[in-house]
Write a protein that binds this DNA or RNA. Structure first.
Lengths: 334, 334
DNA sequence: GCATCTCGCGTCAACGTTGACGTAGTAGGG
DNA sequence: CCCTACTACGTCAACGTTGACGCGAGATGC
């Protein structure tokens, strides 16, 4: 209501509980009760306090609140890089679920450098996060293990190796591989090759393939890249020219396989069916669109928040290792 | 050194400056000085303090520190969704630069809902961020304007419309369009059509095209989607069958254009050259790989952090509108 | 009519840190 | 020998909030 040169950039000096209290003529403690919806105040005071809050543009200072309550309602998310194809999806799921649960999210990436992982953990812990979700990929997980031992609420998404005693959530890769092979079998394929990779020793996809395939497994291992896929597929055709299906370790390799199969005069899917793994975006754009296994990273992220939340709410809860199903995405390559 | 049932999950009770101080036999204030690298302590005490910090696993409580210093060394990043094709790149650039500057990042998405934008701003401000970067896309920017008026350090990336008095950073779309057209001209094309869209009124790309093209502009506007691209390109061919180049509003439309051109018996790039805009990932995988304009979102994100940082360090700094260049990515479609 | 309870507050201390200021002891200058 | 300056601390209050507790007034129970 004041005349003059108001407007423009009035840097509103943050007001506090005390300012509101003074305005209304009650104690700060009473304002605090109203703000937090506790009991112990009359309807009339509540209204006057609310009015004063509006007028002053009061916002609670969550730092001060957290300092005393020992709860910040924040969680941290640590990943490798947003240029990784899956991490944005995981982060999206984390963000959605966190927002749903009223949690604010810290975010950091490590580029798989152990020092940066340690640094990210340190700052987040120093900022009193209630818990941390990590999607560490290849990196050395020992800083994470140490944090968990220190009592930090921690959930690891897709740990590279099993970490007993630590909360984690992984995709059911073996079941996914079995589903892929079974899909090929039910669509009439019987000579199914596995275009695999040997980078990690106990490869769950390979295990699933071996469990599901009938007769002698046809396995070639190579690098998990486009080049590896090209070479590996040629090797497969040389060793078993009569195959009628290829199950690949990932979509990039599957696309390479399609290319080699076409070059060799085999039509996909008529002569040879191809199933990939990962459901990268590209796989729905190529011709023929690729049948593949989808890990549903968004849901994976959301689930990891729910797990973390249950840790926060139930201190001393026993660690849990959740497996998340992988679903078949049927397109035109099978 | 203690025997017994130690190990396992020793929830290390957070230690404070007081604990360290007691251990060393100095005052907390002295420990604080050592931790912050201030002056006023001897080399000997510093060493003993450091040792005690190690032993106790002391971490400064950044909430308490921020509460009193009024600086949190945190910034917030608000975007629409990580499923948006560009936001992860912006976020990656923001994260890298923030990490470089010692800033911790809050993160939130809005799905273009104004209420969620307001909510994200509110919590971040309540958590005393030093500044906020927003990548709002279509949403109503008024909550952002209000925040800026309240004195929040704010940088908007790619504001939908110019917001005078507010710090922003945008891609130089007009210059990009000019560069695209000039590239076509220098490679010998003279009858260049623009496959545009009419969603936003003063379209910078259209302006650039009109400025650079020689003779009468050939413009068709349609929806900025694959379907729009198909229909628009057919319209172009009907009206100007003799065109030798198409400049599209975005890559999706450019890819649709290539498809229609091929169907009409025109070879790309031999008969007609095509330039897109955005440099989406897909554009390097298609055949022929698409020549397009790259907005370099990672650098854009990094620059926005530097701008925000300068705001934080220089209170009262005049608002700045930065334009970031768009670069030509030549591939095989031209 | 008195004890008891509940409501609607207020008071005080504490969370872990740093800013402002004080001070004992030593060094150096004249 | 005194004054000044500096070093190496310590003390105290404050940041904005909430937990623990206290207390008077009115309602309720018997």
């Amino acid at each position: 209501m004041e005349a003059g040169l108001a407007g423009r950039s009035m840097k509103k000096s943050e007001s506090t509980l005390h300012d509101v209290a003074r305005r209304v003529g009650v104690s700060p403690r009473t304002v605090s009760r109203v703000v937090n919806g506790e009991s112990g105040f009359s309807e009339a005071t509540a209204e006057r306090v609310q009015a004063a809050i509006e007028e002053l543009g009061y916002r609670p200072n969550l730092l001060a609140r957290s300092l005393i309550t020992k709860r910040s309602n924040t969680i941290g998310l640590i990943g490798v890089s947003l240029t990784d194809p899956f991490f944005p999806e995981v982060a999206e799921g984390v963000q959605r679920e966190a927002s749903e649960l009223g949690l604010t999210m810290f975010f950091a990436t490590t580029d798989d450098e152990p020092d940066r992982l340690t640094a990210a953990l340190d700052t987040m812990i120093s900022r009193a996060v209630d818990g941390i979700i990590a999607f560490p990929v290849q990196a050395d997980a020992s800083p994470l293990v140490k944090a968990a031992d220190d009592g930090v609420n921690l959930v690891i998404v897709h740990p590279a190796e099993p970490l007993p005693g630590i909360n984690s959530i992984s995709s059911d890769l073996k079941a996914g591989a079995i589903a892929a092979v079974e899909h090929l079998q039910t669509t009439g394929r019987s000579r199914i090759a596995y275009l695999g990779t040997s980078t990690r020793s106990p490869n769950k996809r390979a295990t699933g393939y071996i469990a599901a395939v009938e007769g002698e497994p046809r396995i070639v291992t190579t690098a998990p890249t486009a080049e590896g896929g090209l070479a590996g597929t040629r090797e497969i055709l040389k060793r078993w020219p009569d195959i009628d299906a290829v199950f690949a370790y990932n979509d990039i390799m599957a696309l390479a396989a399609i290319q080699v199969l076409n070059e060799s005069g085999r039509a996909v899917p008529n002569d040879v069916a191809v199933v990939g793994f990962d459901n990268i975006e590209l796989s729905s754009y190529v011709s023929p669109p690729l049948t593949t296994m989808d890990m549903d990273h968004v849901t994976l992220g959301a689930k990891s928040v729910r797990l973390l939340h249950s840790l926060i709410e139930n201190p001393g809860k026993e660690p849990e290792q959740i497996v998340h199903p992988v679903t078949l995405q049927v397109r035109r390559s099978t």
